[in-house]
Amino acid sequence: MTEVETVSAKQVVPDDPALHESMADTLASRGDWRGAYEHLRAALELQRTQPPPLPEQFRREVDRLRRERAQALEESLRDGLTTVYNRRYLDRRLDDLLTEPRGPLAVALVDIDLFKNVNDTFGHLAGDQVLRRVAMLLREGLPQHGFCARYGGEEFMLVLPAVQPDDAVRVAEGARTRVAEHPWSALWPGLSVTISVGLAYEAESAFGDRRQVLEADHLLYAAKHAGRNRVAYRDWSDAAVIGYCP
Rank of each mutant, 00 (worst) to 15 (best):
L160Y: 06
A24E: 12
L44N: 11
A168S: 13
T6W: 12
V134F: 03
L191Y: 05
F115C: 07
W184C: 00
A168C: 07
T99I: 00
H218N: 10
Q50Y: 02
I195T: 04
L191S: 09
M157K: 02
R150W: 01
L114G: 02
E215V: 09
T83Y: 05
N86I: 01
D167F: 04
A108S: 10
W184Q: 00
G80T: 11
H39P: 06
R150M: 07
L191H: 08
Y89G: 02
D166K: 12
T82E: 09
H20P: 00
L137Q: 01
E75G: 00
A149L: 06
S196H: 09
F207K: 10
Y221Q: 12
A108K: 04
A168R: 04
W33G: 02
L158I: 10
V62P: 00
R170W: 01
V197D: 04
A36C: 08
V193I: 13
M23Y: 14
S29H: 09
R64S: 11
V13G: 00
P104V: 00
W236R: 15
A203K: 07
D113Y: 11
H145W: 11
A216C: 08
V159T: 06
T6H: 10
S185D: 14
Y244S: 12
A172P: 00
D120W: 07
L77W: 05
Q212T: 14
E140K: 14
N86R: 03
P14L: 12
V4Q: 15
E215A: 15
V12H: 13
A36S: 15
G123S: 04
A72F: 08
G146D: 06
Y201F: 15
Q129Y: 06
G80I: 02
T121P: 05
D128K: 10
D166F: 01
P165G: 01
Y233R: 01
S196V: 06
E155D: 10
R67K: 13
R88G: 07
R87D: 00
E38P: 00
L219S: 01
D96L: 14
L90I: 03
R133P: 03
R228F: 05
L109M: 14
L125E: 14
V7L: 15
K224Y: 07
P101Y: 05
F207C: 11
D15G: 10
G103E: 14
T194M: 07
F122Y: 15
L73S: 08
G31H: 12
P17K: 11
